[in-house]
Design a protein around this nucleic acid. Structure first.
Lengths: 343, 343
DNA sequence: TTGAAAGCGCTAACAC
DNA sequence: GTGTTAGCGCTTTCAA
């Protein structure tokens, strides 16, 4: 394996000796240099460089009780997470923000229920200053297992009634859905259908609510429950065509299902958007652009959501690492309609 | 923010007091219980449970110099990494393996050259026991900045001549490409073209080599350099059609470009696979399945690659955390041809 | 087999 | 302003 040299690294002590000062002074300089006279700062800096000194984080954490690290917990069974760049973009946003605050990102992927205890133990173990948790399912037991760690959730947690002081970041699923459906209506479509996502996730529920907000007395047959997958969208569309052959527009709860629906439509000889207009949600690139025809959809700024989650968490941590400086509240980001060809 | 209780956590001392033994004994039990008599083990275990004791990792690392953590470094500018589930799958494989070894995953995403120094410093800082690095570009300066940390690379590094003891895990890009091209030839195609990936990445170079292995004296006009993106594939295909209108098969260096190429073909009125057979690489789901027509491609087991990287790294770390137990060597995983409709 | 004691490298009072 | 000193919580000799 590359580079396994294990020469002992220099300590504060060594730097102090070299610079001819005390450990305390070196420590002060290394941590910002407040209250140390310029010439000394200079001498210490030089010694640090010459020795290639890097502080031992373990020793530091031991006394400060801070870790400069944040855990990101992602529930794995979510195949959806891996079927699109959602996850990667979210992480990128989080990473950027953490880096700007000199914090590390510890990634905890859970592979089913067994892992929950492991994650809970880790978080309780005080290895990190806080946690960012993606809890996608209504019945997810994980949140109840998390104690003693400041936490921000990604996506509105299903078990939250919004008042328990739970902090989360989400996009405006309901408002975005409304905008999508209004767009279809504005196109003159009157038989607008909805293919829902997996209804044990709040995003699916909220998008359905948004649909209903606009199509107040929609024929129940125009709503088909599905699961966020392309195959699910395809099946749902076929069922829709059987139930209501006169359907002239579909709002699918995500892009994957919208693409599946378009396959079903093509297979049945319907043209998109002439016969049936189709609109998705997420704006998952390059999937939406490469779709045939290119998909009109509701975009959410995923990276920004990640960044915001991290920012909210860090804001809640004061310099001592675990207490609370000011209590942030949840944030819901706006969505935007992206018009392409399908609707 | 949820749960900011900060009651001091119990220490070894507390457990020892409760169990009526010394700290040393508790430590032994917590670390496996070797050489402690059964009744005592039992008593200590109970005390641990009752107090909800969790070892302080910082204190432990301070003395053991092990961290039970591995860094995963991903060069970010790679938009490709975010355009498909590659990244996520790789992480999943890595995570599974690390979890099985009680190691944590510290994710380091780099956002351009400036970040390289930061990452190098972090790795040199001895925060982790080892690193898994995805170094995709030939001229990436990062590898040269990494010192003092056992490292395994994801994908054959471009600067490696294979003899410097560099350990990496890759798929058989060249062999997979050969298989793809042979398949096209087996279909009776005689004017087989290749759309390359970004040639500053070894995967692109190796796939091109594989193409050449089979099409030994291919018309140079049948090879177009591209960049792994759908748009690039589309442009490359148009150029190909201009240069050699009689082209009857295309091997694109990845699925994204293959899909772009199919768009260009459709636009020019060529049928796939009747007029031109198309084959991709990666088997990036659900992209390949949802393509029209469904894409024939070369599959690589991405998750397994991640798992293997982690396994190789951990194998190189003996119990003391930084020395080398046995020196692992690079691994190249086989690929498989997945026949769908496009070829 | 168990316990006592010496640190690991650092920060933060507290003196000077 | 700078140095001295006392731990942070744990592992690990070394004695008993």
């Amino acid at each position: 394996m590359t580079d396994q040299s294990t020469q002992p690294r220099p300590t504060l002590e060594a730097v102090a000796a070299r610079a001819g000062v005390s450990r305390a002074t070196v420590s002060r300089v290394v941590n910002g240099g407040e209250g140390v006279r310029e010439p000394l700062v200079e001498r210490v800096r030089r010694a640090v460089d010459e020795l290639g000194y890097v502080p031992n984080q373990a020793a530091r954490s031991l006394v400060t009780r801070r870790h400069d690290a944040v855990a990101v917990v992602i529930a794995e069974p979510e195949t959806r997470v891996f079927a699109d760049p959602f996850f990667a973009l979210q992480l990128r946003g989080i990473s950027k923000e953490l880096t700007a605050h000199d914090s590390q990102l510890v990634l905890l992927l859970t592979e089913g229920r067994d892992d929950h205890a492991r994650v809970a133990r880790y978080l309780a173990g005080g290895h990190v200053d806080g946690a960012l948790v993606f809890s996608l399912h209504l019945d997810d037991p994980l949140p109840s297992l998390i104690h003693g760690v400041p936490t921000v959730y990604g996506g509105r947690p299903g078990w939250s009634d919004g008042s328990h002081g739970v902090v989360y970041v989400d996009c405006d699923n309901r408002g975005g859905a409304r905008e999508a459906v209004r767009h279809l209506v504005g196109l003159g479509r009157t038989r607008v259908a909805h293919i829902t996502g997996a209804l044990d996730q709040t995003s699916a529920v909220d998008r359905l609510d948004g649909f209903r907000d606009v199509m107040v007395d929609a024929d129940p047959r125009l709503i088909v429950e599905s699961d966020f997958t392309p195959g699910g969208g395809e099946r749902a569309m076929r069922e829709l065509l059987d139930r209501r052959p006169d359907v002239d527009a579909v709002f699918a709860a995500n892009d994957l299902m919208a693409v599946g629906a378009m396959r079903a439509l093509r297979e049945r000889g319907r043209r998109v958007p002439e016969d049936v207009a189709v609109i998705g949600f997420d704006d998952m690139l390059p999937f939406t652009e490469q779709a045939d025809p290119p998909l009109t959809t509701v975009r959410q700024d995923i990276e920004e959501m990640g960044r915001l989650m991290a920012r909210l968490l860090l804001r809640g941590l004061d310099r001592s690492g675990s207490a609370v400086a000011d209590v942030p509240s949840s944030v819901v980001l706006p969505t935007t309609l992206v018009r392409r060809v399908s609707a």
